[in-house]
Amino acid sequence: MKENKETVNIAFLGLGGQGIITLAKMIATSALDTGKKVCYNEIHGLSQRGGSVQSFLRLNEESSPLFASSDVDIVVGLEKMETLRYLYGIKEQKPKVILLDYFEIRNTNYFGLEVFPEEEEIDKEIKERAEELYIFDRENFKKQFKGNFIPYNVGIFSALTTFEELGITEEIGEKIVKKLLGKNILLSQVNKKAFKEGKKWIKKI
């Protein structure tokens, strides 16, 4: 395990509307709160919803938030196909992968596309390319909530506090969720709950 002082490079991958940027912001704010250096970057395209979104974050580093894919330590994927696309770019080593168990069924009529990867195939490929694979149990996490609003990103943030190299304690995590997502009284209750629940649903495969 790396010492806490060393740089930790994290890639967040997913789709527009999943809260990727907010997730990176939560990590960065926690880092600042504990007196660490941190920087991150967001890359997104044209669409409000559904387009590819990536965010890259570096702990204990303050100049370039972008890093070479060969230098990534942790890959946090909120959608399987987006995650595999990034993993394909890494030839040199295998990173630690934390993955939301979510595969977006796309409209297969895109360009009359018949060759469309099956979820099982993607699962297999991701597993092969990860040094350690942790799955966030989306279905069971979802069951803990009544409404339509389910903050998976907060759940993943909670799960990430269990990884020592990030150096985020439960206490800080809770404080950050309240600070960043506490404005709307109704939603803040859901976010609070998501933070409480999240860490229960991460499992090493």
Binding site: L15, G45, L46, S47, Q48, R49, G50, G51, S52, M81, E82, L84, R85, Y88, R106, Y110, L113, V115, F116, P117, E121, I122, E125
Partner: peptide
Amino acid sequence: SEELLIPRTLPRLC
């Protein structure tokens, strides 16, 4: 990507 044909995620209307 060629390895497993990964379709590009195209931008789309919400």
